[in-house]
Each structure stands twice: as C-alpha cells, then as structure tokens.
Design a binder for these strands. Structure first.
Lengths: 348, 348
DNA sequence: GTGAAAGCGCTAACAA
DNA sequence: TTGTTAGCGCTTTCAC
C-alpha cells in the first residue's frame, strides 16, 4: 500500500502538502494539486482508513447484531441495513447471536471495543426470556449510539424500529370478518417471543370485539417450549407441525379462516389444507407472514402480511446515523412503527 | 473511552509501563502489574482496536462479498463465515452485490482501501456473464488474500471452495435409475449460471450413460433471460413457474422422476404435482436442492440435496486465514470441494 | 523494573 | 503556497 510519505518523497514535497492536495485544499496551487493527484492515481494510492479513524475518532462502521440470519425476515433486514449504510458511507460489521444471550453479550463486548460508531440490535430470544439487559446498558454507558429493531424491550431507552404486531393481526381479523368469515383460527410457532405475544393478543382482542367471545381452542401453538431456538432449527417443529395443523383443521369444525403468526406456518397450513382437499379460499382463507417468495411456496399461493423488513433495516440505519451525527445525547428517543401491508396470494 | 495515557496519569507511571503491564510483560514487577490491571478493570479499559491496527498493519477483519443474502444458500454461507471468523478472532464486514457487476466493483474497491486482511467472494451473475474480472485482479495485485466460493472463475488464481455440481447431479440420476426410474426430468431456473450449467451437464451426461440418449424435451428451463437477478426477485419466475411446471409434467408422458437444479423449483414441483393428484413418490420422485427447512415447505416433503452451505462458509474462512498467516505468496492455490449429501424427505 | 522516544498514516494548526 | 510540528492510541526498542 502506497502512503502519503512515499508520494511526498517522490515529488520532493512535504507530507502535508500531499495531504492537502489530495483533499483539494485551496491552500495548494492547482499546479501542484494536479501533479500530486496524477501521481496518486498512477500509483493507485488509497487513503488508509485506519489512520483516518484513529485521527478522527470515527470508524464509519456500524455494528449489527441479529438473532438469526437463517430467518428470512432478518436476512431482509440485514439487506436493508447494508443498502442504507452504504448509501451513507458506512460499512457494517455483522454478528448473529443465534438466539443466545451469551453470544449477544460476547458480540456487544467485541463491538464496544471502539471499532464501531453505532450499533443496530435485535434481541435474542433468550435475552428477552431472561429479562437480562445489563450488557446493553454498557453500550449506552459508553455513549455508543444504539437503535433496537423488531425485538425490543422497554427496559432500554434508545431509538427503536418495530412493526405494529397487535394492530396488524387485529386488522387482519377485522378484514376477514368483513369478508364474511365466521370462525377464524390462529396458528403460532412464536408465542414465546414478545412479538408473537402481541400478535396473539391482537387476535384475542379482535375475537372479543367482533365475535363477542374468544375461544382458546382456536389457537394452535406449534411450539410450546420456551427458549427453543428459532423454529427453523426446531426438530420438534419440523416433525410435528404438519400433523398438528392437520389435526387442528380437522377438529375445528366450521373453521373458515386461518391466520398464521410466523413466516413458515402459513405455508404449512396451505399445503396441509390442500392435501385435505379443502377448497382454498372458498371454504378456508389462509393468511400468513412473509413476502412474495414465501407466497410462491404454497399452492394456492399464501396471502401474506408483509412486514417490509428491508424498510425496517433501512430506517434503523438512518435513525442510527442521525443519532451519531447529532451531538446532543439529551434528545428524547423515538420509536418508529413501520406499517405492514397484506398482499396478493389466492388463499384469502 | 479510557486510554493508556489516562491510566498512566492516574497511577503516576509512564504509558509504556501501563502498556507492558496490560500485556503481562515480565519486564514489569507483578506488584505494578496488579495495580495497573486492577485500575484498568475498574475503569473498564479496552484496548483501542484502531490504534492496534495502525500499529500492526492488521485489522483482524475480513471482507465478505456475496451475490444475494435473500438467497437462503448464501444466508447459510454467511452464517458459517461469521461463526468461523469469530472462532479465529476475526470480524466480518459484509456486502451484497445483488448480482450486479457494478456493485461488486464498488465493494471490492471499498474493501481494497486497506481496512481488511482478506476477502471472501462469490461472484455476481453479471460478473460471470460479462467475463469481467479485472476488478478482482486488483485485489491480488494489492496482495490482499482472496478466497472465492461457489461462484468462481478459472480466470483468477486463488484458493477456492465449491461443491461438485456435475457429480452431484450425475450421481443423483444414477441413484434414481437404480431405484428403477425410467424417465427423469430436469428443472432449472439457474442455467445462466456456471453452477447451473455444471448441473445440467451432469444430468445430460448421466442420461447418455444410463439411458443411451439424451432428450432435450426433458429439460425445463424456467428462466431464459440471462442477467436476470436471482430468481426470487424475478417477476417472470414468480408468475410463470407453477404453470410451466404443470405443463411440463402434463406433457412429459411417463415421467417418473424430477430433479430440480435450484433451491426453489423443487418445492414448486412437489406442490404442483400434488395439486395434479400425482402420487408422490410412487408415481413421481422429486429431488431438489436445499436443506431441512426447504424440505418442510412442500407436502410430501421434498427430498433434498444439501450443499452444506454453512460448511462452505467455515471452510472458506479457514483457508483465507491460513493464507493470511502464511507469509509466502508463492504457495500454490488449492480448490476445495465440499461433498453434497442427499437427505430425507418422502418425495423420492 | 521503569521511562523516553519513535513511529504506524493521516490531518490541521501554525510558521515560514 | 508550502513546510514543520504535534498528536490520534498503541507497541517496542533502547536508555536509565
């Protein structure tokens, strides 16, 4: 790697002249600027980021800790994060806590060692279950700006980006009722997460509001254990989900709609109902979380509630960088809610 | 952030003493070591990575450029990369080229600015189509170690990690033939990629070897355009895939097996065949690429060829870090082949 | 056993 | 318009 010093030597000027010339300083004559920049290009000179960071005390790098990259939702979030970060001139260093508190602590520890200007964090399942947030307070103590997304907690004061889980499901029930559905079931594999709980609460409240009552039999919980890593890694889920759904549909006489609370169970529900020769959506509407691709994977295609994960990622980055650039730590924190939208599919 | 200087001042010793003490140097009396380390812990002192990097000319960071994080295969690769990197004490900076040559150039440019000790790269579709690799040569010119994975090219000399695409499909055909299958179809949405071509060539060769001939009618290409971004983002694919598969199955009289070359088409094939009331696997075996989760998404569950993406990621990291640590640039490069395995499912 | 000084690559205040 | 110098936080050689 060629350095300022080397350029300076070659041209018999001082290092600072070279530095200024490369920064187009108007202290330097255009003549020398051209001379220096030409040589720099010729030798493929690149500023050394590390040296800049040390000097400026800025790394132009963000730390990202997500629970599980194999969950398509977080893959999309990460994608959004990368896009937005790049637009604003930041790199991202990524970590996946794999739903483990211990890992999350490790990673935030690594990050706090001062190689990052700010942190994006979605809490692990274990962290939420154990209600253990002191490792995060460490960050804020060290004055490292933090934005939490999707998996958040009230216990930490910072900017946040989430979706309106409760309202999303409430409104989905409402919409199904408007379409004339009379008996709506709810399938969830994530009721151990706070987002999952908000979703089932939205369902419960809507049932009470629209049907005057709530029937516990109409909720199918596919995963009962707490602290099971994400459903995609759950042997239990893989082995039992299809059967459980099949029994659920069979036993719920008159069921004419299903809402699935996570981004896999909806697909399983459509495929299972198809196998049972149920006419979808005539006799049974099915709605799940996901995106266009998720929708394709079932036949008929699942109607999906899109959480706009990419947008969540982008928004989080923008909030974080704003926070980094605003000197005042005194600002009040805001929680941004990204609206969901229901899309396409032929299953509703 | 507390610095060496501050610690030194508080204890009335020199900066170098503090530095040595924190590194447990035997130049320093155990008394002072304890004194200094105690204070350091108390004040939550952390070495400044940036300063260390500047000094040592090592960043302990790897640059990762993948084509598309929304492709589950690469999500798993990234996961493997993160795990292995962490184990070896490295951070990763990630970029997604979104199958674009221009982006790939940008990102390698950013990376080459000296903030990374080595690079992991899977080429974008466009890069491969345009046969344009000069931006990669730049890396090697700058002596930045490089490992290419999955999407590689002969044009660049470096360490590589791939799967045996040709043999995988060849052997799969062989296995189906052994099971008594007489007419095996091949569905691909990635024939514009070199990995896709290797797979279809494996299929062709096997047909010739086991059936004495090869019938072009038995290959269904779901995406014909070149330079279409990944299939998940292809409107064309989303709209036409199911219908195309349905027609393909209908028109191929006597078809008793299907191999799908990508990690989505297999699911669509099962779901489509199910809808046509074909008895799977009795009358039709179906095999696709993917993993346990992929398998779940169809009913009956798709039999999958697992590429062991996580292992690919881990292996790449280990090769890269070995290369970083071995001073000699003269070493010959190796290409590691990760074997695939066919697993589970009830569709074969 | 401890400290002074140089230097990693860069910027910026100040001097010339 | 250009150069000198100090310093970002750390390690390391060499004196003391």
């Amino acid at each position: 790697m060629v350095t300022l010093k080397q350029l300076a030597k070659k041209l018999n000027v001082s290092v600072s002249t070279v530095s200024k010339a490369l920064n187009n300083s108007d202290e330097i004559s255009s003549e020398t600027i051209i001379k220096i920049q030409t040589l720099a290009k010729e030798l493929n000179y690149k500023r050394n980021k590390i040296a800049l960071s040390l000097k400026s005390n800025k790394t132009l790098t963000l730390g990202v800790v997500l629970p599980d990259i194999l969950n398509r939702f977080y893959a999309k979030v990460l994608y959004g994060i990368q896009i937005a970060a790049e637009e604003l001139g930041y790199d991202i260093i990524t970590f996946f806590s794999k739903e483990s508190l211990e890992k999350e602590i490790d990673y935030l520890q690594i990050i706090a060692t001062g190689s990052v200007d700010g942190v994006l964090l979605a809490l692990s399942e274990e962290t939420l279950n154990k209600n253990e947030f002191s490792h995060i307070k460490n960050l804020t103590l060290n004055n490292i700006p933090l934005v939490m997304l999707d998996r958040i907690t009230d216990k930490i004061s910072c900017d946040k980006v989430i979706i309106d889980d409760f309202d999303t499901i409430y409104n989905e029930v409402k919409s199904l009722v408007k379409m004339g559905r009379k008996k709506i079931g709810f399938i969830t594999a994530i009721n151990n997460l706070n987002v999952g709980k908000h979703r089932s609460n939205g369902y419960r409240k809507a049932c009470v509001d629209f049907f005057g009552k709530f029937d516990d039999q109409l909720i199918l919980k596919l995963v009962h254990q707490t602290n099971i890593s994400h459903i995609e890694n759950s042997e239990y889920y893989r082995k039992n989900a299809h059967n459980s759904i099949e029994n659920f549909i069979r036993e719920s006489k008159g069921l004419d709609a299903i809402i699935a609370a996570d981004n896999i169970s909806g697909i399983l529900a459509v495929n299972t109902a198809s196998k049972l020769n149920i006419d979808i959506p005539k006799d049974l509407s099915i709605v799940g979380f996901g995106d266009k691709l998720t929708s394709m994977l079932s036949l008929p295609q699942l109607t999906i509630i899109n959480q706009h994960a990419v947008q969540i990622g982008k928004k989080s980055v923008r909030m974080l960088i704003n926070r980094i650039n605003s000197k005042s730590t005194e600002n009040t924190f805001v929680t941004e809610i990204i609206p969901t939208t229901t899309q396409g599919g032929s299953s509703k």
